[in-house]
Write a protein that binds this DNA or RNA. Sequence first.
DNA 1: AGTGGCATGTTTAACGTTAAACAAGCGTGG
DNA 2: CCACGCTTGTTTAACGTTAAACATGCCACT
Lengths: 357, 357
Amino acid sequence: MRAKRATLKSIASELGVTPTSVSNAYNNPAKVSKALRERIIAYARTVNFEGPNPAARSLRTGRCGAIGVLFNDQLSYAFTDAHDITFLRGISSVCEEEGANLVLIPLQNKHPEQRDSLSAIVDGYILNAPYKSHPTIRHALARGLPTVVVDFDAPELASVQTNDREMMRAVAGHLLALGHRELAIITFPRSAGNGEIVSLDRDFADENYVVHERIAGCRDAFAAAGIATHGVLVCETPNSEEGGSRAAERLLRQRPVLTALVCFSDRLARGAIARCEAQGLNVPGHVSVTGFDGLDPPGHQPGALRLTTVRQNAFEKGRKAAEILLRARGEGPLKVGIEAEFVVGDSSATAWRSPSA
Amino acid sequence: MRAKRATLKSIASELGVTPTSVSNAYNNPAKVSKALRERIIAYARTVNFEGPNPAARSLRTGRCGAIGVLFNDQLSYAFTDAHDITFLRGISSVCEEEGANLVLIPLQNKHPEQRDSLSAIVDGYILNAPYKSHPTIRHALARGLPTVVVDFDAPELASVQTNDREMMRAVAGHLLALGHRELAIITFPRSAGNGEIVSLDRDFADENYVVHERIAGCRDAFAAAGIATHGVLVCETPNSEEGGSRAAERLLRQRPVLTALVCFSDRLARGAIARCEAQGLNVPGHVSVTGFDGLDPPGHQPGALRLTTVRQNAFEKGRKAAEILLRARGEGPLKVGIEAEFVVGDSSATAWRSPSA
DNA sequence: AGTGGCATGTTTAACGTTAAACAAGCGTGG
DNA sequence: CCACGCTTGTTTAACGTTAAACATGCCACT
């Protein structure tokens, strides 16, 4: 039976002072004489008092010194993704400077009954590429705390955004300029997607904002080249090497004439490349494959294929989001753009198959 | 001017019921008639009430549904380390299953005045390879919350431990068996270390527990081989490729006859190898280098050197720690061991230089 | 008819803290 | 000598919630 913990009140009564003075000894040293303060701290030490109860303080002050981060996907997935990890690193670097705690909030998919309330004790949220429709995210938004959304469109909220559309236009334009006409797109999940294959001229309005923007960028490129998007396939798959591989396999089966695969992440691209090579298709000889993120580990191996991709600064994205949340005060939601860079690597080349069937 | 937020109380008075009933509508649906519950929820929705205030609930119930994780190092550093990331992934996988939030707590190094109180609102702690002496960690321990320590020795606390000592003995034994007599050790920081070079027969009792155990394992191997540890150098350096490289450079300058470098992490080993090669020393031809962790990315590149290392299951380590904290109830602190495996790769080989000077 | 039990709701009293307003004492300057 | 301000501390009330005990009505069972 653990002894009851000491509180400001118990210490105060023990010492014959008021709880306020004990509180001040911790929070407002200037409001208390040095002698009293030292007496309080000394006594507190003897009863293993480790400072004011954080929950009570938070209730009283309305602040708790922590920010919450929400991902679309499972948390344990985020920790496998170079982009998400780097993004978190950016956030955490600011948290360290500010002494703020960082709360990772898993989406409630397993316990639907818990979806009705979001129990995180935080001063604000960073929402990474949220699906508007997910209940947990809806709750986060509805709570009305300061919120920064990342790669998302929300006029009333502060946001940090990469120019996905323009970048993807560059990628698709690059492939079209190389003569590719039989392209397909491999995307990570657009919403609660189940891996269907659809056409590029479908309506993507309700989708994940990142997917929406990148799809739009692809269309821009096709439009600029005067090529119809009808019949261009878009395959949705989990964002992993495995997912990329399976998607490539399905697309190549459905449309063997493909000469280029536009992947919405490097992981998907790596998987797609592996699949192509397993089928005896050389990359970029037979099929060009592009990625997105540009976060391959620094120690580049000599023999490895350098991806044609878009390098985005996920660290800076995280930093900016956290800086806005923890430091910005002022009028109107901030909108910050993060520079990205189109990088031509060795995974794309001139189309070799006869253009179109 | 944001309108004041609705509370259980305000909703109750609005609806002519008691706050308890509103609370029950959220927490104990069985204690409230279906009709009333629906009336409450419906009204709550119209006033943008997103469930009971988490801080108040936490104060009242004494629980908050979150666990805190503390690292030795900067948080933003942990996000660059494959071991730490995988460890976090293990923790987060359990948090997801349990619907618990995960609070990453930066060590307070920048704001010394904040060191006196730890403001995290959590139900328990996971301490990853803690330095006993760091103030933040001392506070975490002193708060008396349920705590699981990882790779640390604390009889009164639950723990999850890799058998560092035995594994390191295997590594050093392997090198000694290959004929190496001029070994040096490269370790990540032992405490508040500043990068000195010391002898292996120094006293490491007060150091980081992991370092302490691994050093002991090295000594075991030397003892078993009947070789003196006097004069065997131990170099401390930040745990990064850069750190490994610098340490290797310093050690080779101080003792050019070295034929083997025992590194306490794969990152250090990678850096050391790069440095050796930059100096024209072939690995493992001229110098053998060993690592620790075995977490190299799965997509192994053809030309790359496979490290001789110890593969430890960081994911499982994280999972077990979180499971103990969130699920274990019972008598006495649990002690869980995590299996590791000594892996002979291509970075170690027979010593070629004449044994000893 | 009386008793027990269940369903539904209320009353009461904290949980531990801190903001704001107030009081007492003491030195200082005009 | 008095008004003023500073230092040090106290009083009061509230932050928003929920556990525990209590009240009430209704039905069922004996």
